[in-house]
């Protein structure tokens, strides 16, 4: 494993921990999109189908369990926890899941590396992950006051994607690594979705201002 991959995974882990910290400690999920969190739970559930049948490393299995466990527990907190769910901005978080899930599923049926159940599910999870942040970005744009933890959560998620691209470039040159169009293009699309957010994040950081996205 190279340094970019490890840094990417750790950034991903940090993003989840920041979100859990906010929800668990402050007992608030204000500004967090339940739609995005449910999409991530679906992404991990469909991607890690082989978690108990295909062993790669202890690190790999452990991280998969963390991402599965954290994404489902965040959804549980936002839907069921009696204090946390009160802070959920239901009226603002109106993005329709199905508009993302259905096209991703159809695309995975058509464009995949092999037409098998596991392979189609894996491809679906890649396409869905690429766009899963959209409800969250829409919610951020509607929320006039983005709190620090929510801003950091989205920043860390975007950072994780950017580091994965560096990881692929590194692997391409150092390993007998083939071109993985599906993984790379969906990963690139996903990272580009953060470009606008990054711009305003750095802008607010440089000027020491509160993060606000233009309406």
């Amino acid at each position: 494993m190279n340094i970019f991959r490890l840094a990417g995974d750790m950034t991903h882990l940090a993003s989840v921990l920041v979100l859990l910290l906010k929800i668990h400690t402050i007992k608030s999920c204000a500004g967090v999109s339940l739609k995005t969190q449910e999409l991530y739970a679906l992404v991990f559930a469909t991607r890690y189908l082989d978690i108990f049948t295909h062993f790669i490393s202890i690190y790999n299995t452990l991280m998969k369990l963390i991402f599965l466990g954290s994404s489902f527990s965040i959804v549980w907190y936002m839907r069921r926890h009696k204090i946390v769910r009160r802070s959920y901005d239901k009226e603002q978080d109106t993005f329709r899941h199905l508009f993302l899930i259905l096209p991703c599923f159809l695309l995975a049926l058509v464009i995949n590396e092999r037409f098998t159940f596991k392979e189609v599910m894996w491809t679906f999870s890649l396409y869905l992950e690429a766009v899963a942040i959209l409800p969250q970005l829409v919610l951020l744009q509607r929320t006039r006051n983005i709190d620090n933890l929510t801003g950091q959560y989205v920043f860390l998620l975007g950072g994780y994607r950017a580091l994965y691209i560096l990881n692929w470039i590194y692997r391409y040159f150092t390993e007998q690594h083939f071109v993985h169009w599906i993984t790379w293009i969906s990963g690139l699309v996903q990272t580009l979705l953060y470009a606008d957010f990054f711009y305003y994040y750095f802008h607010s950081w440089k000027n020491n201002e509160k993060l606000q996205l233009p309406a």
């Binding site: 790669i56 790999n60 998969k64 692997r171 690594h177």
Partner: peptide
Amino acid sequence: DEQESVKDEL
């Protein structure tokens, strides 16, 4: 092989 190198990622 080719398949494995991507699936070892998260």
